[in-house]
Structure formats: C-alpha cells, structure tokens
Design a protein around this nucleic acid. Structure first.
Lengths: 200, 200, 200, 200
DNA sequence: TCTTAAACGAGACGGTACGTCTAGTCTTCTA
DNA sequence: TAGAAGACTAGACGTACCGTCTCGTTTAAGA
C-alpha cells in the first residue's frame, strides 16, 4: 500500500537545499556582473557546481531562476508606521525603493527582470503579482483611506496617482535619463499632493 | 588613389535602398509578431531576402536594426499649439503617446526596445537621445515657461514633473498592470497641476 | 556482523525472484522490439516496475542484463545422437542454430549481443565462454573423433573446420547479405566434407 | 539571368576540404583508440578543430562518419592475377583480408562498424554494398568460372562457398575465439576445395 | 565600351548555448 | 537488508543563431 497520507513523508531522496541556494546565488551573481546575457543556464550550472538537468527540473526557464534569485536577494519590507502622515508614509516608501535600486544589486536585477519580462509572460505576471502589486496595494490603501478621511479630493484616479509616484523610479532605473537622487522621493510626493500651481 | 573629390560620387555600386527598406520592414514585422526573440538576424535576412552579411555591413547589432525600424515605422510628431494652455498642451502630448502605444505596433516595438536597451548601452543611449529626450525637452520647456510666467510654483523639480507625466505611460506599457485607457492623460495632467488635496 | 553460518540462511530480506524475472523479461522484450538502443536501464526499470538502483545492484552493465536475458530466453540444447553419422550430427546442429536465429527472437538478441560485445570485453568473454565455446567444443569433438577413426584426413585444422561450419551462420545473421535458408546447413556440411572438386 | 547551368560554379563559399579530412582523421583515430563509444560527434569535432554543426551538415550520423573514415583509411585493392589458379587467387584474397584486419587499424574499425551496423540499417547497407559485396563478387566470379570450366562440381552453392571462405575471418575478428594466424587463409581454401575426407 | 570597386547573395565555418536524454550514483523511506 | 522512489552529476545529443569568412555576381561611375 502506498498512500503516504496527508502527513506522510515524500518518497525518495529529498530535494537538496544546497542545490537551491547555490543556483540562486550563482544566478544573482552572474546577473549582477553581466546581466541576463551572462546568466545562461550553462553558466549558472557551472558556477553553482550543479548539473544543468537539475536546474531544468526545478525552474522552467532562466527567467524563473532570475525571479527567484531576485526575491531571495531582495529583502525589502513594506512596513508602514500607522501614526505617520500620508505624505511621510509615501515618502518613506519611495525613499526605500530608490535606495534599494540605487545602492544595492537589486537595481541591476530589477532592470534585467523587467527586460526579460517583455519576452516571457510568466515572468511578467510573477513580477507583477509578487513585487509590484503588493507595493502598489499598500500605497493605494493609504491614498484611499486619506480620501475617505477627506484629506484628499474625492475625484482622484488612485491607480494613476500610484503610477505618478512609483513609475518615475522605474523609468529612471530603466532609461537612466536622470539619477535616483536623494530628494526625488520627497519631490514626487510633495508635487503631487500639493499640485504645481501656486497656492494663491 | 581614391579621391572622389568634393562633389564626387562614391565609387562602386551604390547602396541599395531596396535592401534598407526590406530589412527594416522585415525586422519590424518580426518584432511585432514575436518580439526580439523572433527578430533574429537570420530570420530578418531570410524574410527580407537579403544576405546576413549585408545586414551586418550596415547595422552593428540587431538592436540597431530594431531601433531603425522603430523610427521608420513610428511617425509621431511633437507639434505644439502655441496658443493652447499648458494643461491642454501636456494632455495632447500624453494622449498622442498613449494612443501610439495602445493602438499601433509601436507599443510592442517600444517594449522590445526598452528590454533590449537594458543589455545594450548603445541602444539605450540612442533611444534616450532620439526618442525620450526630444519629447521630454518639449514638456520641460512648456513647464519652465509656465513657471516663468508665474503660472506654476517656482520651486518645482522640472525633471521630476516630466517623469510624473510620462513615466506612468511607459510603466503601464512595460508591466501591464493597468491599461493605457482614454482618460489617463487628462488624469495625469489634472492631478499633477492641481494637486491631490482639496482646494478650499 | 554478517556471518550467516554454514547452513544459516542469509540475514535480511532475501533477494526477490520476482525482480529478477521481471528485469530479464523486460530486457528481452525491449531488445527484441528495438535493439540495444531501446534497452536502456531506465527503460528496463520502468517496464519491469523495478528501481534502477536494484538493477545496478545485481548486474554491472546492461550488457550483462542482455546476456542473462538471452540465456534465459534461449533454450537451445546441444544434444548429440551417438549413433548418427558425422555428417548428420553436424547438419542437425547447424540446422538447429539456423532455425533458432531465423525463427525466434534469439536471432535479434544474438545480433545485439554481438554488437554490444565489441565494446564490452566482459560481455564478449561471457558470450564466448557460455555460448560459442560449448557449441564449438561439441563440433570439435565430433570432428576430432572422426579423424581418429580415419573418417577424415589427419592434417585438417579443426578450429578452421568448425569456423567454416558455424561462421557462415553468424555472418549472415549479422550482415544480412543472404538468408538463413532451409538447406544452408546441409550445403555447408556437404561441401566441406566432400570438397568442391569433382570426385572423378 | 542566373542559370549557372550544369557546369555552373556553385554559389557561396566552397566546402572546405580541410574540414573533410580533419573530421575523417579524427574519427578514425578516436575509433581506433576507444571504439564507437569514444567516437562521439562532440569528441570528433573537438579533435578535428571543427564545429559540431559542420559535421552534422555533411554526415547524418556518426555511423556515416565512421564509414567514411573506414573507407578513407582502408586502401584495400581487390586485384586478381588472371593467370593464377583458383586456389591461389582465393588464398591471396583471404590472406590480404587477414593481414588487413590483423596488422592495421582497419581491423578495429571493421569491428566497430559491424557493431554499429546492427543498430543502423543505413550503415549496414552501406557496409554490405561498398565493402562486402564487391569482395564477395570477385570470389563468386572466380568460383563460378571454375565450375564452368569443370574444375569444380556443378551442384555447389556458390553463396555458401564464399561464406565458408570469408565468414571465418570476420567471425574471428568479432569474437576473438581464435587468432587470424598466418596459415588460416591457406587452410580455409585447401580444406574447402579438397574436402575433409581422405582422398584414397 | 571597358574597367574598377563596392554592394550583394549564397552559404560554409567556428562558436556558444540551448533543452533533452541516459548512465550511473547517492539518499531517504518502506516492507 | 532488499527494494522503491527519486534527486543528483556527468556528459553527449542534435538544433539554432551568432558573427565572420570566402566565393561569384551585380551595378553604376569613371576612364
């Protein structure tokens, strides 16, 4: 009788944690050093000291490996101080994102992932679901609640608002036309909340 | 000795215009159909009825071919009505961009180019210089002049302002988290100029 | 400590006869259906419902599995009628061999084994020792005794004689240039004993 | 007008003779050193300093490469002295074959080819057509003509006769149960022509 | 008209990585 | 302890493009 039952241990040799870590590490290193074009399955396998077949067993494409290594490397918490003002909360969020992309390897990783996502709907979806959406959701909630409290106008397009805060960061990361400089987060939040017109 | 002289035409068989057009057409078609991964040099050459060597002779990488075909296919004028208000001018600009990306093949082309640019600084620079910069420059001029006229606050970060207008469009194009819907342009301009807070 | 003692049964779970049979059956079937290239260890294990490791435990290479399955499947007795003439005895032997190779799966198995043997000295030796040698030995004894009785010339090369009887069968099996037809055995024996020259 | 005509020069870069020779040489070397299992396409490509794709372009399987290299390496003429006796002619033939297999690398090559042929009908056919058949044909003609001259009995099976001469050589080559010693050819021919029974 | 030189098509070639396959080995749990 | 399950390394498979190369063939301007 087979039936291992709901709590039954899986049959056979268990998956090696060593392998998982080695692959993700190797992938992240290669991505940071030379981008997606350097992060070939062959290269990752060699660097990780792991067989190609093993990689293919656990990840369908190198895009998924890259995704996994990004999430493993990127420990970015979305903590919100409940007592902070809307303006402060949003600024802190954006500052953290800018710092992450500017000061750590995650910037390079995100660029490569964004590029890869254009050719792999799976990666695009995963990126949207596990990275963009949670961050946008927090911001959208803050904005919505502020609107409900009467702090913001009632007729705003919340999706568009969140884009006007986050998109500039990704845009600069991807096209490099301007730096992710220190004061950017504050400027984005300030200009959008207050508006560009003089207050009369 | 070569010396074609100042007015002298170049010796030898002149470059075939037919080839140039066929290559750019084939490249654009392939890009639209299957993205960068389908637009191989081999594929472009076959589809264009042109020799691989000829393509390499005129374009250093397929990124450059893609760039060229994008610019050839994309007829997007940046006309500005001098009598229009700042708000209208910006809205018209953004609406045109949204329509271009939403309704024509240029959206797909831009996505592929943006992706490719992450791995090819040449393409990134060319994209920045010949596409992003001119459009940003127009918007920056409009904003700066409005500020000088006193229509806008004096302490705004013009670069950031332009990003808050344009970046959301590219962000949605690349990540697909929200559509480039009709009213987006107006919302972006309206929210940013007026601010999110209630006026009174 | 192992020590099963002189009459002692071996410790632990005894080897499963079911496994042995299943493996040899599966191997023979696969060999007949698709030759050595189809009879992979993986395939045999799958078909026999047996673990790969178990096969490796009992047979060093798949050549040995094939050998075993050949000997299991091939029930070919080398019975000699002591009253029969030399000519009849040899003819019967050869006819049996031809029939075995022509009418049963053993022909295909032998072809595959002969091929495999070229790359595996172990298999070659085993084939020689357990298959070729016993059959050759019988024939050599018959020929030698006939020579001693004066029925045959004294200066013959017995090894070569046996080759001239058996080799044609294997040659046709392996190269297929001519069929193992009914009268072949008689022709081989007749021509060799009598000689090709007219008896005048 | 294009039409190069029947004698028209082929378009494009001409096939490199250097490559052809290097591949066949490398293949023959590897075959002799380690047999078919060592003569991988990968190995041949590396040793020949040639791309794998190039090999695949000109030879469908490594079996064909092996065949080609065998025929290139093996310069074995089937010359027949018209004034020699039947016995001498056949003996010379067989001696040459024994010497070829015993003293040159062709023996090893033939063994590997014979093995490979069991799993590749193409190779088997090619071997039969370009190697076995021409040699058998010569022997069959000699035997047939001798029969017509009345030197041999009229009722012999010529195919079987030729097998009784050649098969022992291949049999010993493949199974190694006895050496291809010097006097073998003479023994085979002598015993068969004269018969084994005492002449009296 | 003839020469000359570059453009061009065809396709061979050395590479690199792909994704798949099988051989064997190793590790864990079950009978 | 035998055996099942299956993870794992090693390495060849055949394919697809890459970018370079060597040919022969066109095409037009200049001699």
């Amino acid at each position: 009788m087979v039936r291992p039952g709901p709590t039954g241990a899986p049959r056979g040799r268990p998956r090696s944690e060593r392998v998982r870590v080695a692959v993700l590490d190797a992938a992240a290193d290669l991505l940071v050093e030379g981008g997606m074009s350097a992060a070939t399955i062959e290269g990752i396998a060699a660097r990780a000291g792991v067989s190609k077949a093993t990689i293919y067993k656990w990840w369908p494409t190198r895009g998924h490996v890259a995704l996994d290594s990004f999430f493993t490397r990127t420990r970015d918490t979305i903590a919100v101080d409940p007592d902070a003002s809307l303006s402060d909360s949003l600024t802190v969020q954006l500052q953290a994102l800018c710092a992450l992309f500017r000061d750590t390897a995650s910037g390079r990783l995100m660029r490569e992932l964004a590029a890869f996502a254009q050719n792999d709907p799976d990666v695009r979806d995963a990126l949207e679901e596990h990275w963009l959406r949670p961050r946008r959701a927090v911001a959208m909630r803050l904005v919505t609640e502020a609107a409900e409290r009467g702090e913001l106008r009632a007729d705003i397009d919340v999706e568009a608002v969140v884009d006007q805060l986050f998109a500039p960061v990704y845009h600069r990361l991807l096209f490099g036309h301007a730096p992710l400089r220190e004061g950017l987060a504050a400027a984005l939040v300030g200009q959008l909340l207050t508006g560009l017109r003089p207050r009369n």
